[in-house]
Amino acid sequence: MSLTDQIPQGPALEFVTCLHVEVEAPLELGENARGRRRFIPIIGGYFEGPGLNGRVLAGGGDWQTLRPDGVAELEARYCLQTDGGDLIEVTNIGYRHASPAVMARLLEGEVVPAGEYYFQTTPRLHTTSAGLDWINRTIFIGAAQRLPDDVVINVFSVN
């Protein structure tokens, strides 16, 4: 049997933490060639799980493009501070999409069950902390849910 005859095995996922990112109302930036631009200020929050615990620092934000095809492209940048005082930079890229009716409910601030829409991210974490250096060489994925005043992201390491 050759290697091409074998069914590849996918990577394993391990739950690391759950981010609860508190946000303010979006600032509408207007239309460009790619869609409707918005900025959502990040004002705080917390994270907890078997791998990382602490708080989300205020001062970050999520830059979004709501494309004509109904897909929201997301790019959030913010900082985390662990319970031990270590700082972690986060760049989180993702997509959120659903039927037009579900997207309208989300944009109105309604709580919509996560199973009714696609909201996945790829968080990139960086730190100068020697004790957390493992995050500088790990790929993460996030399964997210949008709530009226926060975004909940379950973060998994790809092993």
Rank of each mutant, 00 (worst) to 15 (best):
L29P: 01
G49M: 10
W63A: 11
T4E: 15
L74P: 03
R77F: 06
G51Y: 11
T128G: 14
E28F: 13
I153G: 02
N154S: 15
Y118V: 13
E108Q: 15
L106H: 08
F47A: 03
G61M: 10
G131A: 12
L107V: 03
L106W: 04
F119P: 02
A144P: 10
E31D: 12
V158A: 04
G84A: 15
D86G: 02
C18H: 04
G54F: 01
S129N: 08
E14A: 06
A12V: 11
F156P: 00
Y118T: 12
F39G: 01
E31N: 09
G84C: 04
P100R: 04
D150K: 15
G61K: 04
R37D: 07
R137D: 09
R124P: 00
P11T: 10
I42E: 00
N92T: 02
P8W: 09
G35T: 08
N53F: 03
G84P: 00
A104F: 05
A114V: 14
L147C: 12
E24H: 04
P11N: 11
P113E: 11
L13C: 01
T91V: 14
V23C: 00
M103D: 02
Q6K: 14
A25L: 11
E108G: 08
G142A: 09
I7W: 09
L19D: 02
T128D: 15
V102D: 03
I7D: 03
F39T: 00
E28M: 10
I153D: 09
Y117T: 07
N92M: 07
F39S: 03
G60M: 07
W63L: 13
R38N: 03
A101W: 01
N154K: 15
A98E: 08
A72H: 01
G61V: 07
A12T: 13
R105L: 10
S157M: 13
L147A: 13
G109Q: 07
P41T: 07
I139D: 07
L19E: 05
R37W: 08
G115F: 05
I7Q: 13
L125C: 06
R146F: 06
I88C: 10
T128N: 10
D133Y: 01
M103L: 14
Y95V: 11
P26K: 01
G142I: 07
E48I: 06
R67W: 13
E31Q: 14
V21E: 01
G45Y: 02
V102S: 03
V102K: 07
E75R: 14
L27V: 13
L106G: 09
I141S: 04
C18E: 15
R36I: 04
L80R: 06
F47G: 01
E48G: 03
H126P: 00
